[in-house]
């Protein structure tokens, strides 16, 4: 399983691997928002938590179809399925590799972008915490969506339609953590909910993903 993680990370950083693609997209979307909304710093600060979280969602979505599509195209997927690795483990590692290449860099640069959006400095730790807790769920749910549409050509749009509604709980509680943090209220409840959602996703989604892969491999 470690070998698979290493390979996926090596592939991501090499030519055409798409490492940083989601990050660049995230940066651009957030930079565009002040242009669209205007220079009202009070308004920007209020909508910043939502903007950062929606941008994170879209950035994660951007590279989801690569999770399994590339392995399907070159025939690695049936070979992995007949290898000693359990398919559930493959699904988990694939989700994890996606998080390391997309969610993790995005979490790290988020405070800088919070500054750009005039987010209250009190909310910065909460922004980091909520993204660190929430983005793994985005990757794992995304791996499930990618597994469902793996055999389809141009399945990316369908996958977005399948995956985005599943992102709603993470979005709600993720943005709530930051908004409450900015206003100085307790973030205890939304943070626990966010962690709970991520834990639940990691407990269930590898099995759902593996089942979807098995059906698509037939």
């Amino acid at each position: 399983m470690i070998a698979l993680l290493k390979r996926d990370l090596a592939l991501a950083v090499r030519a055409g691997g798409g490492f940083g693609l989601g990050l660049a997209f995230f940066l651009i979307v957030i930079t565009l928002v002040p242009f669209g909304v205007g220079p009202d710093t009070g308004l920007l600060g209020r909508i910043a938590p939502g903007i950062v979280w929606v941008a994170a969602l879209l950035a994660a979505l951007l590279s989801l179809d690569r999770i399994f599509a590339l392995d399907h195209e070159d025939g690695s997927l049936p070979l992995l399925a007949t290898s000693p690795l359990p398919l559930e483990g493959v699904a988990l590692i694939k989700g994890l590799a996606h998080w390391i290449t997309t969610g993790l860099p995005l979490t790290i640069v988020a405070p800088v972008l919070g500054f750009l959006l005039n987010l209250d400095t009190a909310a910065f730790p909460w922004l980091l915490a909520s993204l660190a807790l929430g983005t793994p769920a985005l990757s794992m749910i995304g791996a499930f969506g990618a597994a469902l549409t793996v055999g389809l050509r141009r399945g990316g749009l369908l996958m977005s339609l399948l995956v985005l509604p599943l992102y709603v709980p993470t979005l709600i509680f993720g943005a709530l953590v930051v908004a409450r943090g900015a206003e100085g209220f307790s973030t205890h409840m939304p943070l626990l909910m966010l962690a709970g959602i991520t834990a639940g996703v990691f407990a269930l989604m590898p099995f759902a993903t593996a089942a979807a892969l098995r059906i698509n491999l037939r």
Binding site: R14, G75, S76, L79
Partner: peptide, 24 residues
């Protein structure tokens, strides 16, 4: 199982490709 598709990663070298399957 070996099919028409080889499961080769273009961005990895020959040795890396084989080392990956050995590790798996």
């Amino acid at each position: 199982y070996a099919s028409h598709a080889d499961g080769i990663k273009a961005q990895l070298s020959v040795t890396e490709n084989l080392a990956f399957w050995a590790a798996v």
